[in-house]
Design a protein around this nucleic acid. Structure first.
Length: 842
RNA sequence: GGGCGCGUAGCUCAGUGGGAGAGCGCUCGCUUCACACGCGAGAGGUCGCAGGUUCGAAACCCGCCGCGCCCACCA
């Protein structure tokens, strides 16, 4: 308590480490796996990359989830926030490879086994960082049950799912066009591709007809791929080319004969209307080629260089070199007809930044349509609710048009595909096959394959565990928009297929936080803001409050002001608590014993604040919840209630009421600002244990007191009117003025106290100030500046006359009186009467 | 090309049919016995533009202007 007496500021840096220790020691984050999922509350954290560090997105999402978890825990539910990290195939492998490069070695030199050992070492060294950072934020994730998407149990779950889907015919191997990332030398999925706008040249190239009778000109931005052309296509309805269909052209440089085919895909109004078909290197041409049974030739290799099939003159060249060589040859032969700048979108790898090279290769695919149907139904029939609602349309549209998913990756770090080959034989199983000579498929699974099992694999699936029975399905999944398809949709599909139920009931899609200038927060742009720095500066409560207060259903700019607002809130609560704790009688208890109208008022307002907070949380409106809390603490508790109590004796009744209000306020605020509230809780008389483990009674509408609220609304308005008058009349703040109050009933003395009026004194009339339901006569004679006072009264009369005019005009509008709701018309009449009385009073 | 959203005080944003709000910033005043990371009082807005619906529009509808984001295989 000595610290409370001495300190006038809440010091997060001093308090937070202590509080974190107490929370961790209590084990509150690790609920027993009892009860049913309906009784319990659970959230699976979106697993951060194992070698990642906390960024603003994590900080926001963790603040949201921890607020939900703490709120529900305090309602008395077993609350489990499932913790773990993701092995993040490409990202992690790249980091380790970079480290190896620094040591002058490489993954190839080490070999697969030793390389993977190195990654595990890496994980041991850096994998704990983000978990430690979550503690700084106050996140009560289940630290005692941390999972990893490559831990032993998780591997079993992944293999089990792969084998089951294979047996069901949903997983298959095929030669197919994939997005090849020359940067990581692996196939990547459609979702890992990002389109960028690029200015290339659009070349027009003449292909002579085989019979020597003229030529056909095609347009292309990638002349180097012509080495793999196997046809030319035109639109069947195109009069210009109708006579050519069925004939052949000669591929320049190579000399191959190309059939001229007709296909609806070809646009007549783009380029020349004739399209070269390169099934080996263009996704559209690939489809056309398959439809027409064309050969598939590959001239670009997985290393991004030309292959032997491109011909001796090109083999080994880079794609760019090959382009120049092809163009030079065409120029020489007079076949290059045109070249003009052309801006279009081109796929780039999200992972490596390299330009994606569409290639045909032998990969593992997963058919999605069969699993997509129930996943769509779950959202359509409301078993899963996506917030905001608009995102469910995106979800459904994506699933509607879903395509096969390329799940194999040419990496070493990840879940190795459980498939073995021996000659023509293929074996698929969770255990290696019997016998000699089997060789395992070297590829690993796309990281999102294992992430898709997250909500149930973390709880022990495929075993029937108590954890699974108690916490699956989870309640809420909170995530950013960008992984709605990549991750959320796949969890729904796989959860329904394997765990027998939807993986969560609500999906909350939160804001993306941009830099204060509206650009993306990114390390490379230098626009990133480190949440840990912000915690150091302002405290974890401030950061949590600020992030929640700035969150929305759309992208937001990072607002340091909101964080500072949170810091002020924590400090305000600290000092308000000091005022209460240093004055009340410790033995008075905490059962409220309201003696005055403002006691009844604050108890009623507290119920209103609790109800509003709960409602905002239920609607995932975290900004409203946080700002509503701020408004209650500042605008009702501190500005009014605590001020009203000043000058009153802190007897048992008042002490009990104030302690009650303080306790309730701390429990209300705890989910948002857990540190300061937990710290204060330990000083409140009669509390035991941790606030984080306290039980809270839900808001009770029967405890609202309309009469007290109405009376206090009038008091507050009167006080503000009188203070405003004093200030503008130039009265010194400390000056006590004689006055008479007409109206305000039993609250007149309270108003007088708050505005330094002396109801016993008397003097010549100075001014009359209108207040709700009456007026106040200031009787201070010449104490104040007469001239200023007259100006003020004049302005007030003008204001009243303007308002009266407005009301009269409205009421003289026949349409308004006839069509507006009657109570509104009545209210307008009452207002007019009141305004006239106030004007008369002056 | 399709879809979603935004434009309100100097700044960041609430407000979705009945008299324009908050936080920050700004001005004035205050050593008021919790807090100067404080208290009190103010100034500041043709609610992007133009039309329509309505007794009444910041809000609903149409168009335009400006700004975001997502999806999409026109070489």
């Amino acid at each position: 308590m000595t610290t409370l007496q001495e300190r006038t500021r809440f010091e997060p840096a001093e308090v937070e480490p202590r509080i974190v220790e107490r929370w961790l020691d209590s084990g509150l984050h690790h609920p027993d796996p009892d009860g049913t999922p309906e009784e319990n509350y659970s959230i699976a954290i979106p697993p951060p990359n194992v070698t990642g560090v906390l960024h603003m997105g994590h900080a926001l999402n963790s603040s949201i989830q921890d607020t939900l978890i703490r709120f529900n825990r305090m309602q008395g539910r077993r609350a489990k926030w499932i913790l773990g990290t993701d092995h993040a195939g490409i990202a992690t492998q790249k980091q380790v490879e970079k480290a190896l490069q620094g040591e002058g070695t490489s993954r190839e030199e080490l070999g697969r086994e030793r390389f993977i050992d190195r990654v595990w070492e890496w994980r041991a060294q850096y994998g704990g960082t983000i978990v430690e950072q979550l503690k700084r934020l106050g996140a009560t994730v289940d630290y005692d049950d941390e999972r990893f998407t490559l831990d032993e149990g998780y591997v079993r779950a992944v293999l089990e799912v792969f084998v089951a889907l294979y047996r069901k015919g949903l997983i298959y191997r095929d030669n197919y066009m994939v997005n090849w990332d020359p940067g990581t030398r692996s196939a990547i999925s459609d979702l890992e591709v990002e389109d960028r706008e690029v200015t290339d040249a659009l070349y027009s190239i003449a292909y002579p007809l085989a019979d020597g009778d003229g030529e056909v000109v095609v347009a292309t931005v990638r002349p180097e791929t012509m080495l793999a052309d196997t046809a030319i296509a035109v639109n069947p309805g195109d009069e210009r080319y109708r006579h050519l269909v069925g004939r052949e052209a000669i591929l320049p440089i190579v000399g191959r004969r190309l059939p001229i085919i007709a296909d609806e895909y070809v646009k007549t109004d783009f380029g020349t209307g004739a399209l070269k078909i390169t099934p080996g290197h263009d996704p559209n041409d690939f489809e056309i080629g398959r439809a027409h049974g064309l050969p598939e030739i590959t001239v670009i290799g997985e290393d991004g260089r030309m292959t032997e099939a491109a011909g001796a003159a090109f083999a080994g060249l880079t794609v760019d070199e090959a382009r120049e060589t092809v163009l030079a040859a065409l120029r020489e032969q007079g076949l290059l007809r045109d070249a003009e700048p052309y801006t279009h979108t081109v796929p780039f790898s999200h992972r490596s930044g390299a330009r994606v090279e569409p290639l045909i290769s032998l990969q593992w695919f997963m058919r999605m349509d069969e699993l997509a149907a129930p996943a769509m139904d779950a959202v359509r029939d409301g078993r899963i609710r996506i917030h905001p609602e608009s995102q469910s349309r995106r979800y459904l549209e994506w699933l509607q048009n879903i395509r096969p998913w390329c799940i194999s990756r040419q990496l070493w770090w990840g879940h190795q595909i459980p498939v073995w080959y021996r000659g023509e034989e293929t074996y698929v199983g969770t255990e290696p096959p019997e016998g000699e000579g089997w060789e395992r498929d070297p590829d690993v699974l796309d990281t999102w394959f294992s992430s898709g099992l997250w909500p149930f694999a973390t709880l022990g699936w495929p075993d029937d565990t108590p954890q699974l029975r108690a916490f699956y399905p989870t309640d809420v999944l909170s995530t950013a928009r960008d992984i709605l398809f990549l991750w959320v949709a796949r969890m729904v599909m796989l959860g329904m297929e394997f765990a027998g139920d939807v993986p969560f009931e609500d999906v909350y899609v939160h804001s993306v936080i941009q830099a204060p200038d509206g650009r993306r927060m990114s390390k490379s742009l230098g626009t990133g803001i480190d949440p840990i720095d912000e915690i150091d500066r302002h405290g974890a409560d401030a950061v949590r409050f600020g992030l929640l207060a700035m969150s929305s259903t759309q992208d937001v700019k990072y607002s340091s002001e909101k964080v500072q607002q949170g810091q002020r809130l924590a400090n305000k609560l600290f000092n308000a608590s000091r005022y209460v704790l240093l004055n009340v009688r410790d033995d008075a208890g905490a059962e409220p014993r309201p003696q005055t109208v403002y006691d009844r008022w604050i108890l009623s307002r507290l119920q209103a604040a609790k109800a509003a907070f709960a409602e905002n949380i239920a609607e995932f409106d975290f900004a409203k919840a946080a700002l509503g809390l701020y408004d209650f603490v500042y605008g009702e508790l501190c500005d009014w209630y605590l001020e009203f109590t000043k000058g009153r004796e802190f007897a048992a009744d008042l002490s009990a009421t104030m302690v009650h209000v303080l306790r309730e306020t701390l429990t209300l605020a705890h989910p948002v600002i857990p540190f300061v509230t937990e710290e204060l809780w330990s000083h409140v008389p009669g509390t035991e244990g941790l606030l984080a483990q306290a039980r809270v009674a839900p808001a009770d509408p029967s405890l609202r007191d309309e009469a007290a609220e109405a009376e206090m609304a009038a008091v507050i308005e009167a006080v503000q009117a009188l203070r405003s008058w004093r200030d503008e009349a130039g009265v010194k703040p400390g000056q006590v003025l004689p006055a008479r109050i007409d109206g305000l009933d039993g609250s007149a003395r309270l108003v007088a106290r708050m505005t330094r009026l002396d109801l016993e004194g008397d003097g010549p009339l100075t001014a009359t100030v209108p207040v709700p339901g009456g007026s106040v006569e200031i009787r201070a004679g010449e104490l104040v500046d007469r001239e200023a006072e007259e100006r003020k009264a004049q302005a007030e009369r003008e204001r009243l006359r303007a308002e009266i005019d407005r009301a009269e005009e409205k009421l003289s509008n026949a349409g308004f009186v006839a069509k507006a709701p009657p109570q509104l018309v009545d209210a307008e009449r009452e207002k007019l009467d009141r305004l006239r009385r106030e004007l008369d009073g002056l």
